[in-house]
Simulated scan of single mutants.
Amino acid sequence: MELEVGRKIRDLRKYYGMTQEELAEGICTQASISKIEKNDETYISAQILYLISQRLGVSIEYFFNDNEVLNISYVNEVCEQFSELIANKDYEEAYEMVKLEKNNPMFSTKRHLKKFLLWREALCINYLYGKKSEAIEMINEALLLSETTEKNYSLEDLNIMTSKAILLGELENWEESLNLYINILEHIKKIPFQKDRLTLINIYYNASRSAIKVNDYDQALLFCNKGILVCKQEKTFFLLGHLNYQKAECLINLNKQDKKMPLQFYKKALALFEGAEQEKYIDIVKEKINQLSPITK
């Protein structure tokens, strides 16, 4: 088992172009990293392995086979509850949990858990009280607690950055939001052990939206196409209607003479919105189709 762990640590370190000294900084000695990677270290403490995993931007489970992963602890369960509440937009209950766990030493004394709480608290105060600027400051504080280096980000770091990009959009700082999405997408393709492809679809959707807001329709179209491709690969309808709608918006702005191509994607978006019974968007798309249809007859 130690041999497999050492190999994975070495391979991931080299993947990020990280030296043994950079990986070891603040965790252990460079000599210890060398021994771990060569399987000369007879015992690796759970604490050191955890810190190494954080530095490399992966969960500790990355180093083990599924049947060797420890049972989910109280902390894991709480984090999963937070994620579920946020996903369901139940910010009131999530905020109550944040306030409770902030006093829990298991969260307040560990950087990665403190980072997680700051991120969740930022989302809660934004959507409950509209404190967007304060929420962004809180997210920046959370990112400062990251254990990764300048050469890599963890998937959680990128999710936190995505939350910041969304907030910047809500403040209509579209240029800054777009630049952040581009940075996120440059790094997300480097993330190993990534299972959550819906996160990638969400990023492409929001990135295309920011690009549209700054009239960069070529960039927006590229994001739409990539998002639609991931939807097809994953066989999911998640945000597919929105991506097709935004693709139509890009096409009509890139070539105002060609009405047939955007009409095709408006109709795809309409079918998806109708299938999902998303009444809010159905009327908007129907109006777009009505505007174009007479021209194409």
Rank of each mutant, 00 (worst) to 15 (best):
M1S: 08
N255F: 14
I48Y: 08
T29L: 01
D216C: 09
F63M: 05
N179M: 00
K195A: 05
D90A: 11
K260S: 01
L128T: 04
L239T: 01
I166M: 01
S59I: 01
D66N: 14
E170Q: 09
E84I: 08
L180P: 15
Y217S: 07
T296C: 06
K8H: 04
Y91P: 02
Y91V: 11
A276C: 12
K259M: 10
K259T: 15
F223C: 11
I86T: 03
M97F: 07
E156M: 14
Y91K: 10
F107L: 00
A122Y: 01
E25M: 12
R7N: 01
S32A: 08
S83W: 05
N71I: 09
E277Y: 15
L270V: 11
L200I: 09
N76M: 00
E176I: 06
H242Y: 04
C79Y: 08
K259R: 14
K189E: 10
L198M: 12
I44N: 09
C79R: 15
H187G: 15
E84T: 03
P105W: 14
E61Y: 10
S163G: 13
Y129L: 07
I27C: 10
A142G: 02
K102F: 10
Q291Y: 11
R111L: 10
I295F: 03
I48T: 07
R55T: 02
H187R: 12
L272Q: 06
Q264P: 04
E134K: 06
H242T: 05
I188W: 11
V230P: 02
E156C: 07
N173A: 14
S45R: 06
N179V: 08
F273S: 01
Y127Q: 03
G275V: 05
D218G: 13
Y127G: 00
L263D: 13
K286W: 02
L12C: 09
L49D: 05
E68G: 14
L70C: 03
T149G: 10
F265I: 12
V75M: 09
K260M: 04
V98K: 03
N206F: 05
E170D: 12
A207E: 06
I284Y: 05
G57K: 06
K99E: 09
E93A: 06
M97Q: 03
I184C: 15
K102W: 07
F237C: 07
E77H: 04
K297F: 10
R209W: 12
L100A: 13
A248N: 01
L49C: 12
P105V: 06
D283F: 15
D258F: 04
I182S: 07
F265V: 13
M97S: 11
Y43W: 10
E22N: 12
P262V: 05
K38A: 10
